[in-house]
Computed example of a mutant assay.
Amino acid sequence: MAITSRDFRELRLEHISRAFGSHNALRDVTLTVKRGEFIALLGPSGCGKSTALNCLAGLLSLSGGGIWLDDRRIDMLKPEDRGFGMVFQNYALFPHMTVRRNVGFGLQMQGVAKAKMDLKVEESLNVVRLAQQADKLPAQLSGGQQQRVAIARAIAVEPPLVLMDEPLSNLDAKLRLEMRGEIRRIHRLLGSATIYVTHDQDEALSLADRIVVLRDGGVRQIGTPHDLYNRPAHLDVAEFMGFRNALPARILRKQGDDVEMSLSGATLWGRGMDATDAGEVVAAIRPCDLVPMPEGAIGAIVTGMEYSGENFLGSGRTADGYEVFFRARDAMAPGATVRLGAPADRVLVYPRENVQ
C-alpha cells in the first residue's frame, strides 16, 4: 500500500550507504528530517547528493543502513509504494499529454477515481498558478511553466516528501530567481517535507531550513544557512561556501578566539576554527571581504580585473606565488601593486592538515 499521508513526524536516514562495485557513492549518511522542513543536499558533482535522492526515491537500492518514515521502514518498498513526489531536472513531462493529464498521471496510476482525481489536479494547478494553462501541451509553455507542471504533478499525490533533483538548472538566471520564490511558497503551503539537491550555494542558502554538505559520499556538515555561511566547520566546506582565498599561514599568537598570523610576508588577524593550536594553518577569506587598504596586510601584483556591477573582482599573486581574489571599487591595471586586508571576523583559520 502506498504512503500518501503528509501527517508524519519525521523521516530518518540511518547509516545509509550505496556502493557501485568498489566505489562508495554514499558512506554512512545519517539524517533526520522533520515534517515541514526544507533540506538542501549541497556539494560538487560526484559528492553523492543525487545518489542519496535516488535511494530515497527507491530508484537505487541501499548497500547498507535503512530509511524510516516514523516507525515504518520504507527502504524495502518499491518506488510507487513510497508515495513520494519527484521533480526532475529535465521536467520529464509527457509531450503528447496536456498539462491537466500530466499532472493527473500519478493519480491515475494509483487508481484514484476520476472525480477525485479531477479535484486534486485542479487544486495542484491552483497551487502552482497554472489553472489557465491546463489544456495546453508542454511545448506551448515556457521553461518555468513546465517546471511548475512538474511540481504540480509531484504534489498532486499528496506526498509526505517531495524530492527535487536540481530542478532549476535548465532555467535562465531570471527564471531561477522567480522559481526559488515559487518553490519556497509551495513548500510552505503544503506542509510536507522537501529534500532538494543542488550544487548552487545561493539556492541552498535562500531555500533551505538546513543544509547538508556532502563530499565523497559522506556528510561534512549539517546546519542552518547562517551556520554554513558564517561558520563552516572544515576548510573544504568553507571553500564551497565562497571562501575562495585559502592562504597558508603560521600562527604568531592567540587572543581568545582570535589569532594573529604571518602569511605572505605580512601579518593578519583571523578567527580560529577549533584546532588552531597547530602552528601551520590556512586563512580562508571570501573575495568580497578582501579589499584594498592603504596599509593592508597582504601585498600582491594585480593579474586581472572583472567588472561586476557595483564593484570590480580582482585577481592577484602574492610575492610567494599564491593567487588571491579581492573586491575593489575602481579598476586597476595588470602589474599594479595592491595591499589587501580583511576584518578579523571575516577571516577563518583552519588547521593546515585540512588542506587537500
Rank of each mutant, 00 (worst) to 15 (best):
L190I: 08
A319E: 14
G36C: 09
G46A: 11
E353V: 14
K78I: 00
P159L: 08
G321N: 08
D135N: 14
H199W: 08
L11W: 10
L177V: 15
S61H: 12
R329F: 10
P248Q: 07
R35T: 13
G21H: 10
R250N: 09
V281E: 03
V324P: 05
S124E: 01
P292M: 07
F312R: 01
A331L: 05
R329S: 13
D345V: 13
S61I: 00
S22A: 15
A319C: 01
G104I: 08
D274I: 11
P159V: 05
Q356M: 10
P44M: 13
L171W: 04
L107I: 08
L59V: 11
P79W: 03
Q147P: 04
I195N: 05
P160L: 07
L290S: 09
Q201E: 07
A344V: 15
F94L: 00
A19M: 12
Q89N: 04
Y229G: 04
C55N: 08
D236H: 11
D81N: 15
A134M: 14
Q221I: 10
A134F: 02
P334Q: 07
V29D: 10
H96F: 06
Q147W: 06
D320C: 06
V213H: 03
F84A: 02
D172M: 04
T4K: 12
A113F: 00
E353L: 06
R220L: 11
L247S: 02
C47T: 12
G335A: 08
D81L: 06
V349L: 13
H96W: 03
D345H: 15
A278W: 08
D135T: 03
E37N: 10
D320Y: 03
R180M: 06
A57Q: 06
E239V: 12
L77D: 10
E182K: 05
A275K: 13
L252N: 09
V281A: 03
L175D: 02
L31R: 11
F240E: 02
M332E: 02
A333K: 14
E123V: 01
E353W: 13
